[in-house]
Amino acid sequence: MIDQTFIGFRLPPHTQVVEKGRLRFFARAIGETNPVYLQEEAAKAAGWVSLPVPPTFLFCLDMERDNPYDYMDTLGIELGKVLHGEQRFNYYQVACAGDRLTFDSRITDIYQKKAGALEFVVRDTAVFRESDESNRKKLADLRSTIIIRHR
C-alpha cells in the first residue's frame, strides 16, 4: 500500500526549452497532417511565433526531467504495474517552439478501490512560461491520475 503521507509531496521543479525538431518528430509520430504543426512558415501564417506545442505535448515535456518515473520510485510504485487512468489539461496560453517552460508538480491524492486491488495516485502540475528573469506566467495546469494494479 502506498504511504498516504506522500500527499502533498512536491517533486523538484524542472525547466525545459521547447525544441522545433522534437515537435516535428512528435507530429510525425502521431500522424499529424496539419501543416501548422509541421512547418514553421505555416505556423507563422496562422499567427504563431513558431511551431505551437500541441495540446497533449505538455505532458511529454514534463517527462523530459532526469527521471520521469522519479515519483513512482519515491512512492515505491513498480512501473510495470502502472496504467494511466485519467489526464486533464487546463490552458491559459499556448506554448511555441523556443519557449522555456517550468514544471512544478505535487502529489495531491492517493486512494484505493476494490479492497486495495487498485491504487490511484493523483499528481497536479503547474506549468509556467519563463519569458525572462522577472516574467513568469502560468501557461497551464495538468492533472494526471495513475492506477497501480495489484493482482
Binding site: 500522424g31 505551437p52 500541441p54 489539461f89
Partner: peptide
C-alpha cells in the same frame, strides 16, 4: 487533440480531459 485542432485553432481550447 489532432481532431480538435483540425477543427478549431488551438488557442480556443480552455480545458481538455480524458
Amino acid at each position: 487533440g489532432r481532431m480538435l485542432t483540425n477543427w478549431l485553432p488551438q488557442d480556443t481550447l480552455i480545458s481538455f480531459g480524458m
